[in-house]
């Protein structure tokens, strides 16, 4: 942890929000595109903080390197004048737009907000444990009851008692004796040590960070892509080929 993670998080978070607002309000599309490039770079920084190293590099290569270059090319190719840009006078439906986005944001925050309150998370966990223990004593009848947060929205689910193995597994994750990633990536050796360059080796605890040190690097992701996710991976190839043909056919003056 230390002081660097919050520092970089707030730097990238403020940068991301500021450049997003820039995209929203800048009139000249070229400057909006530059603002969006800054936004994508901030997101890449956040991905590094989330130990998604491969995706951070992909973000810089694909988004800022390929997609945004395409945007800037098109903007320069069209060479739009003031009138062709499309005027942006204030209209009544803009209020509705801001209102809708505000409601979406409020709904999202109301769903996320309980996570901020650590006290409530602790009590909720205790309640679930209590229910699970009750289910232990009275296995068949009581069960694990999940109440609807909004009364009448959907029926309360009365599942049969969760089996003991699953609870033991959850408990082991809580204790730290096991992680959810265990037994998932059999094809690569978790014991293999990952050599961090000396400059980056801040501390042993930081390098581990609660996750496997290989987490999010090229190797485990490539193993997943060619094993479990091989069909989506191949479908991406087909989709990109179709997109190439589509772009050429649509943009051509006449076939």
């Amino acid at each position: 942890m230390g002081v660097w993670e919050p520092l970089f998080f707030w730097l990238f978070a403020v940068g991301a929000v500021a450049t997003s607002v820039g995209v929203l309000f800048i009139k000249n599309p070229l400057y909006a595109a530059l603002s969006l490039i800054g936004d994508f770079l901030c997101f890449a920084g956040l991905y590094v903080l989330l130990s998604a190293h491969f995706l951070a590099v992909t973000q810089v290569l694909v988004y800022t390197g390929a997609i945004m270059i395409l945007f800037v090319f098109i903007i320069m190719l069209l060479n739009l004048n003031e009138q062709e840009l499309g005027e942006r006078q204030f209209r009544l439906h803009h209020i509705l737009a801001y209102l809708t986005a505000g409601i979406v944001f409020a709904l999202a925050v109301s769903a996320i907000a309980p996570l901020v309150d650590q006290q409530q998370v602790a009590t909720e966990r205790q309640r679930v444990q209590q229910q699970a223990q009750n289910a232990d004593g009275d296995e068949a009848s009581e069960g694990f009851r999940v109440e609807s947060p909004v009364p009448g929205l959907y029926a309360a689910v009365n599942e049969p008692a969760i089996n003991r193995d699953f609870r033991a597994q959850i408990q082991s994750w809580e204790d730290g004796t096991a992680t959810p990633a265990d037994e998932k990536y059999r094809t690569y050796d978790p014991d293999r040590s990952f050599e961090v360059p000396p400059v980056l080796r801040a501390s042993e605890a930081q390098a581990q960070g609660g996750t496997s040190s290989m987490f999010g690097t090229v190797e485990p992701i490539s193993i997943l892509l060619v094993n479990r996710f091989v069909v989506p991976f191949e479908l991406i190839a087909v989709l990109l080929l179709a997109a190439i043909f589509g772009a050429v056919v649509i943009a051509k003056k006449r076939l």
């Binding site: 991301a16 929000v17 997003s20 607002v21 995209v23 929203l24 936004d39 439906h93 803009h94 509705l96 737009a97 801001y98 809708t100 986005a101 505000g102 979406v104 944001f105 999202a108 925050v109 996320i112």
Partner: peptide, 12 residues
Amino acid sequence: AGTFSIGLIGVM
């Protein structure tokens, strides 16, 4: 969620 909402405003 915030950047998503900003993008949503932009689209509208």
